[in-house]
Design a protein around this nucleic acid. Structure first.
Lengths: 208, 208
DNA sequence: CGTGAAACGGAGCACTCGCTCCGGCTACCG
DNA sequence: CGGTAGCCGGAGCGAGTGCTCCGTTTCACG
C-alpha cells in the first residue's frame, strides 16, 4: 500500500496540509483493512500522527474519510487485478475471485465496503464508486467467459458479484482451505457443464 | 414466535419473576430477528415492559440474555426444519437451505449468531449451542444426500454449513430472486454431476 | 392478614465515539 | 525577513451504551 498523497493538491495547497491529507488516507485505509469499516476516528488520527482538528478540516465527516480511503484501495485493487489477467477466460475469472478472497482474508473490511455498495442498500450512494472500480472488471471477465463457452450463459455479472460478496463474508472467518473448498463448489456451479435451469430475475424456485 | 416462558422455573420461583424472564427472552428474540445482534439493552427492557434492574437480575450480562434468546430461536428453527422433512434426500437438503435463507431474509440477525459460532471464532463458546441445534440436522441431510447419490461425495456437512452462512450474509441485503439464483448456482455445484476434484481440507488450489 | 425476602424499576455511573472549538504555530507571499 | 492566512492539535461536548445501585413494591408462606 503505497501513498495516495499524490492525489492531494489541486491548487496552491500548503505542503503540510497535503502531506497530512495523504497520511490520513493511508492510516484510514490501513485500519479499514485490518479491522473493517468501524474504526475510531481518534485512532485514525493517532496512526496518521495528526490531530482531530486536522482530520476534520480535510474531511467533513468520518464517512467521507472512509469513503476517500476506500476509493483509493479499490482503485489499486482493480488495477492490480487487471494487471494479473492472462487472457484465458476461465482461469482469469476464477483467479480473480480467489485473489479477491485472499485480499479479503488479509483485510476483512474490504468487501464490507463492497457489500455496502450493493444496489438497494440504504444510504449507499457514497460507496457506489467502490463498486464502480471492480464492477466493470467483473463484467469483462463474465463476458469473456461467456464467449469462451466455459461460463454457463444464464449467469450475469451481478450473480458473480453477489457470489463474491457472499464468500467474502466468510473468508476472513474460517481457515483458508475451508473457503477455498466453497469457492471451488461455487465455481463448479458456474460451469456450463453444471447448468440446470436457473430461475430468472423475476421468478424463483431453486430446489428441484 | 410463541412464548419460551415455560422454560423459566426450576424451583419455587416467584411467578412474576418467571413471567418477566419469559418476556425478556421474547423481546430479545424479536429484536434480534428484526435488527441483528447489536440491540440496545434499554430497548429490550422497554419491549419486555420491564426495568433494567429486572433484566440484569435474570441475566448477568447482555451477552447472556442474547445467548439464551438465541438458543430458544435456534431450537424452534431446528424443530420446524425437522418437521418439514419429506425423506427425499435432495429436495430436503435444498429445501432446508432455501427455508433457512428465507428465515434469514425476515430476520437478518439469525445467521449472524450462527456465524459467530463458527469454529475458530474468538469468544464463541457461548454461541456454540446455536450451532449444535442445526449442526446435526445438516449432518443428517448431507448423509442422506450422499446415500442417495445426488450430493457429490467430497462435500462435508461443514461445507454446507459454510455455504449457508455465506449465502445468509447476503440474503437480507438483496432482493429475493437474486439470492435464489445464487443458491441455485451453489446447489448445482453441489450435485454429483458437477463434481470436479475438490481441494481437501489440508491443501487447496481452486483454480480452473 | 402480616411480614420479610425477593423482585421491581429507573436514575445514574463510567466509558466510548463522532465531532467542534479555539489558542498557538508555521508555511508561504511580498 | 516580517506579517498573516491558514493550518495544527487536543481538550471537551453531547449523544449513546452496558451495567449498577438502591429505595420501593409485590408475592407467598404462616
Amino acid at each position: 500500500m503505497t501513498s495516495p498523497s499524490a492525489a492531494a493538491s489541486s491548487a496552491a495547497t500548503r505542503s503540510d496540509a497535503a502531506r497530512n491529507r495523504g497520511r490520513l488516507l493511508d492510516a484510514a485505509a490501513g485500519l479499514i483493512a485490518e479491522r473493517g469499516s468501524d474504526v475510531d476516528v481518534r485512532e485514525i488520527a493517532r496512526r496518521a500522527e495528526v490531530g482531530m482538528g486536522t482530520l476534520y478540516r480535510h474531511f467533513p465527516t468520518k464517512e467521507a474519510l472512509l469513503d476517500a480511503a476506500l476509493e483509493y484501495v479499490f482503485t489499486s485493487w482493480a488495477a492490480s487485478a487487471t494487471a494479473a489477467l492472462t487472457g484465458r477466460a476461465w482461469p482469469d475469472l476464477s483467479g480473480f475471485l480467489a485473489d479477491a478472497l485472499t485480499r479479503q482474508t488479509a483485510s476483512p473490511g474490504l468487501l464490507d465496503a463492497y457489500c455496502q455498495a450493493l444496489p438497494g442498500q440504504a444510504g449507499n450512494t457514497a460507496r457506489q464508486h467502490c463498486r464502480q472500480q471492480v464492477g466493470p472488471l467483473i463484467a469483462d471477465l463474465v463476458r469473456a467467459a461467456h464467449e469462451s463457452g466455459e461460463l454457463r450463459p444464464d449467469i450475469t455479472a451481478e450473480d458473480v458479484s453477489l457470489l463474491l460478496v457472499a464468500l467474502g463474508r466468510i473468508a476472513p472467518v474460517v481457515p483458508e482451505p475451508a473457503w477455498r473448498r466453497i469457492l471451488h463448489v461455487a465455481l463448479d456451479g458456474l460451469r456450463t457443464s453444471a447448468a440446470t435451469p436457473l430461475p430468472d430475475a423475476a421468478q424463483a424456485t431453486p430446489g428441484h
